[in-house]
Amino acid sequence: MKKLINHTPSSANQVLLGLLPFAILLIAYMIGSDARLAINPSDKLLPSFGQMGEAMYRLAFEPSRRTGELVFWQDTLSSLMRLFAGVGIAAIFGLCIGVLTGALPILFASFAPLLTVISLIPPLAILPILFIVIGLGEASKITLIAIGVAPFIARDIQRRTQEIPSEQLVKAQTLGASTPQILIRVLLPQVMPKLIDAIRLSLGAGWLFLIAAEAISSTDGLGYRIFLVRRYMSMDVILPYVAWITLLAFLIDYLLSAINSRLYPWNAEGKS
């Protein structure tokens, strides 16, 4: 009998074992839902999959009576635009600040303490400030995501830049490279895959800030919808929306990781 620590499932078994918990959860939900609906057919807490399907069909394929929009797709589009804009702005800021402070000791000395302090501010605590200063429109939601995510990306990129062996910087100088040349040719390309990794890690926080901002002030969006229908206890909408957000998050993460290995094949094997 092999020790447990040496038991490695075959790749087929690995997939099956991975799917098993999902199946168990689904079955448990169905049993619970059926049990509750059998007692009270108008129970709202654990809707059946049929009820969820109906609710989602209404939101996805029947134009809203109030605005004439397909609510589900409009929500998805608005939320993704906000998320991409916010995280995109954060990535550009984070990359510039991270590479510059990581590469140039003078900038590191002047800005690293400030960056540390800024990254410790809880972004949601300044949401009211953003609403007061920028107003309740799109800009404040995008700004919240950007402010929430940028310090993390900047500090991560700063660390990654500093991790690049100093031998490479010396070598580049002995080949005649100037400071801008070293920044653009040696450091920037090497932190690009790290930037994508940092974005992947910060997307979770991005979603959090997005949904929080939408819950507080919005007229559409995935987060807005969930908090709106909560008033009617519409679990038949909330549950599919949560599943949809999870799926979107998974797809974005998968896409970014695929882009990373496609664009930067040299990154796979670590440092040389």
Partner: peptide, 30 residues
Amino acid sequence: FQQYSVFPHMTVLENVVAAKGFQKASLTGY
């Protein structure tokens, strides 16, 4: 150096071409 002397994000040829590019007094050395 004993290690870390080459740029891991460039191919062999690019590594040497970049060395030529660095000799030029341009912003990026491309």
